[in-house]
Amino acid sequence: MSRQPVEKALYLADEAATVAAGEALGQACIDTGMAAGLVIFLGGQLGAGKTTFSRGVLRAFGHRGAVKSPTYTLVEPYEFADFRVYHFDLYRLGDAEELEYMGVRDYFGPGSLSLVEWSERGIGVLPVADLRLELQLQGEGRELKLMAGSDAGAAVLAGAHFAKI
């Protein structure tokens, strides 16, 4: 990365705020033209809101249906007019090499946005994240930390408008 890493921290009071933060980030992906080819890692303990945040990202792209955690299938694809969003949940992954058997590298690249929960279980196989998010329970809400890992991630983070949350 040619510039210093970009970081933001937000307090999300409830589930609605978590969805709204995801929607703001998803809209920034669209507005900056970075939606295709972006990899976002979502971290945090069980129940921290990773899938809820992902629901918000998908709403920005126009998805109005349910968003479930793909814990057993490992990946849930969402097709849109110009690209795809892949929502990964690697919680039940036994070994990172299992990702190779499912052809995981085909999911990353031009034309796709990848949201990856439990990314630490895919170390050595997954690409480097453009953005890393960490959700931590804090009182009744959660703290969200966002860290850019590439110029594309920094552009998205700089373009995200979280003011209404």
Rank of each mutant, 00 (worst) to 15 (best):
A21R: 09
I123L: 15
A21N: 02
A28P: 04
T32A: 11
L99F: 06
G56N: 08
L146C: 03
H63M: 14
A16N: 11
A66M: 12
L74F: 15
V125P: 11
P70Q: 12
L133P: 00
Y91F: 13
P70F: 09
A28L: 10
P110A: 07
R105D: 14
F83C: 09
L133N: 00
L42C: 03
L146N: 00
V85L: 04
V19S: 08
C29E: 05
G37S: 07
D14W: 12
Y86S: 07
F53Y: 07
A35E: 08
T52K: 05
E97S: 13
V39T: 15
E97N: 09
L146Q: 01
S2I: 07
G94E: 15
A48F: 01
A20I: 13
A21W: 02
V19K: 11
M102E: 11
V128H: 09
L144N: 00
L93Y: 11
D31S: 14
K145N: 01
F41A: 01
R92I: 03
A24E: 12
V156Q: 03
R92H: 03
V116A: 05
I165C: 05
F108P: 12
R105W: 08
G33Y: 02
R55G: 03
R105E: 11
A36E: 10
E97R: 15
L46P: 10
F41Q: 08
G33L: 02
V75A: 14
D106Q: 14
Y101K: 10
P70A: 06
Q27Y: 08
R55Q: 12
H161R: 15
F53L: 15
G124N: 11
G122N: 01
Y107G: 07
A17V: 06
Q136N: 10
K164L: 09
A81G: 05
Q4T: 01
A20M: 11
L38C: 09
A155G: 04
A81E: 05
V75E: 00
L135P: 02
A35H: 02
G43Q: 04
A155E: 15
L46M: 15
D14A: 01
R59H: 13
G33K: 08
L126W: 13
S54Q: 05
A28Y: 05
D14E: 13
L12Q: 09
F53N: 01
D106H: 08
I30R: 06
E134F: 02
E120Y: 06
V39C: 07
A24N: 04
V156S: 02
R55S: 01
I123R: 15
